[in-house]
Design a protein around this nucleic acid. Structure first.
Lengths: 217, 217
DNA sequence: CAACATACAAACAGGGCTGTATGTTAAATC
DNA sequence: GATTTAACATACAGCCCTGTTTGTATGTTG
């Protein structure tokens, strides 16, 4: 029974939503197409009509909800005149808060974090790598600006600051998402990030260059 | 053709070694017993003789090589008189170095990091949780001692410092192990940890005059 | 040295899952 | 309004994998 074009897009969306739920619960590798189909209220035929195979379905799922890193960093880059460090901290805080409220993003990030990435999902993996690389570059750019603005301790380099921030956020998310959400990610995350950013800025005065306050010219 | 008892233990070890390699390459869920058997130079019969099923084989593999967290922290707790913070930093550095040299630990940690933990491996998962919990408690103990010793900035609590350190190490390892080992984990890890520990200690001196120049507008 | 237990190998049964091929119906198209 | 085609449902073939069972040769024990 053929449906209209609009309805087809709708079922495609339903399939993606179902895949998200099923992949989240069973893991990408261990979820069968039949389960996804049942969860979506269709048969496997519908899935194989819209997607060639599971890895392509997975890829489409990843693309369907862009992780907000890009947008946030783009916004960060758009405002070059303000305090880069404070802006960055605010953006990270907003991102964590967004994640804490958006269950869909939580599921997709969980799937990505614990996905196997071996063999069949190689293309998904490389794509994720590319995103991460761009993400890192953007982070480094912002930190470089913060250094230029004289707001960061010179013991940090753009690379080291970006790496540390990334590792911490990644660890935070992994801990929260993969290990049962046993703490308040907004509160503890904000706190941890705040401390980290304070230590980005903090040491300035301690270093050899004792030229007063970091911002007070 | 029955082998002797000693030889049986040997084949059991061979199976574990093969499982480690195969699980590392294909992921725990996607590796078949046949592949493990071939890699070990035996048939599936041997595996099913020594282990009931795959999840038990996986569990045995996890138990066969204890991750060194426990030992290191035990050593840390044994020396209460020294500078707790410096000792901790040294231990973390040693751990990273150990990991960088020991390919077996790398494989097992990789397997654990990207393992699915859903459904069939629930018991492995809870066991890992227990280990992590004990790990966290030990970390907090050491940081509490560092605070008592007056070596840490009071903006940190034992919990927050332990969480931050854990998140960072976890993120570092995940980045290195799961994403192609594209950087020198010893150098960058040591550097990052060093900076983190410096910022643990750093603010002490600043705390009194902290409100002097927060942003400098 | 006979009898039993052990440490496997080899064969077997069964199921689930994948991908494809075919059928079917309603929407597009003309 | 007939034909085509899109959007599925259903049926099918076949593989791989698991867990079990059976066979068997060799240690081990009394």
């Amino acid at each position: 029974m053929r449906r209209s074009k609009a309805r087809a897009r709708e079922t495609r969306q339903q399939i993606l939503l179902a895949a998200e739920r099923v992949f989240y619960e069973k893991g990408v590798a261990n979820a069968s197409m039949e389960e996804v189909a049942r969860a979506a209220g269709v048969t496997r035929g519908a899935i194989y009509w819209h997607f060639a195979n599971r890895s392509e379905l997975f890829m489409a799922l990843c693309n369907s909800v862009p992780l907000p890193q890009e947008d946030l960093l783009a916004r960060g880059l758009e405002a070059p005149e303000t305090d880069a460090l404070a802006l960055m901290e605010r953006l990270v805080g907003e991102w964590i808060e967004l994640l804490s409220r958006d269950e869909q993003r939580q599921r997709i990030l969980s799937i990505l974090l614990r996905c196997d990435y071996g063999g069949e999902f190689a293309d998904v993996c490389t794509r994720q790598h590319d995103i991460d690389d761009r993400h890192m570059l953007a982070l480094e750019t912002v930190f470089a600006r913060a250094l230029e603005q004289g707001r960061m301790n010179r013991i940090w380099t753009p690379q080291s600051a970006a790496s540390t921030l990334r590792w911490m956020i990644k660890g935070l998310c992994a801990e929260w998402l993969l290990f049962g959400r046993r703490f308040d990610i907004v509160a503890e995350g904000r706190e941890g990030v705040s401390r980290l950013f304070r230590s980005f800025a903090l040491g300035q005065i301690l270093e050899s260059d004792r030229d007063g306050c970091p911002g007070g010219r």
